[in-house]
Amino acid sequence: MKSLAQALSVARKDLAIELRTKESINAAGAFAVVILLLFSFAFDPGADATREIGGGLLWLVFAFAGALIFNRGFARELPNDCLDTLLSSAVSGASLLLGKSFANLLMLLAVEFLSLFVFGIFYDVRWWLRPLELAALCVLATWGISVIGAVFGALTVNLRLRELMLPVIIYPLLIPLLIAAIEITNALFSNRPLGSYELLWGRVLLVFDIVFTALAMALAETILVN
C-alpha cells in the first residue's frame, strides 16, 4: 500500500537523522535514568511494596521520557521549512502522521528497554520472567502513546509554548492507557497469571490504540494544514 510505503519512508528518514544526531534518545534515556534514580529516594527500593508499584513507576518514566521524543518529532521539520516541503509533496497528511508515530514507537521502545535494564538493577525486580507478554504489552501501549505524541506534536509544532503545551495536553489523554499498562505490568512483574481483570485492561489498550489511530488518520489533514 502506497500510504504505508510513504509512512515507512518518513519513519526511516527520521530514524536516520536520529541515529546520526542521537538527540532525542540521549535526552530521553538520560532523563529516564535520572527519574528512576530520584524515585529511589521517594520509595524504599528494596521493599516488596516497590515491586507492587514497579509498573506504575516504569510507565510514568516512559511517559515523561516520551514527551522529550515527541517534542523533537515535528520540531525537526521546522528548520529550512522542511514541513512545508513534506506537506506539499506526495506524502499525505495521514502517512506523515503514521510515519512519525512509527519513528516515535521505535525510539521510545529503545528508551524503554534501557529503562527496564536500569530498573531491574536499581530496584531488584526480575522483569524478564514473562518476556513475550511484556514485549507485546510494551508494543501495544507504546503505540498508543506514540500516536498521541505524533498528533499533538504536529498540533503544537508552530506554537511558541510548544514544550510546555505538549505534556499538559497529552498526559490527561493518556490516563486510560497508562492505567491499563500499569495494571498488566504489575501482574507480569509479580509473575501472576493474567486473569480477567488484566485482560479487561488489555481490551482497553486495544480499543485506545484502534480508536486514536483511526481518529489521527481522519484528522491528519485538519491538524497539519492550517
Binding site: 529550512n80 516541503t85 506539499s88
Partner: peptide, 28 residues
C-alpha cells in the same frame, strides 16, 4: 506540483544524496 518556498526544504543532518533519495522515494 513542485514547490520552492523561502526555506531550502532539506534536512541539515542528512547528506545531499540522502535528502534527494528520501524525496525521490516519497515521490514514487
Amino acid at each position: 506540483n513542485g514547490f520552492l518556498g523561502h526555506g531550502i526544504g532539506v534536512y541539515e543532518d542528512l547528506s545531499g544524496l540522502e535528502n534527494l533519495t528520501f524525496f525521490a522515494r516519497v515521490a514514487g
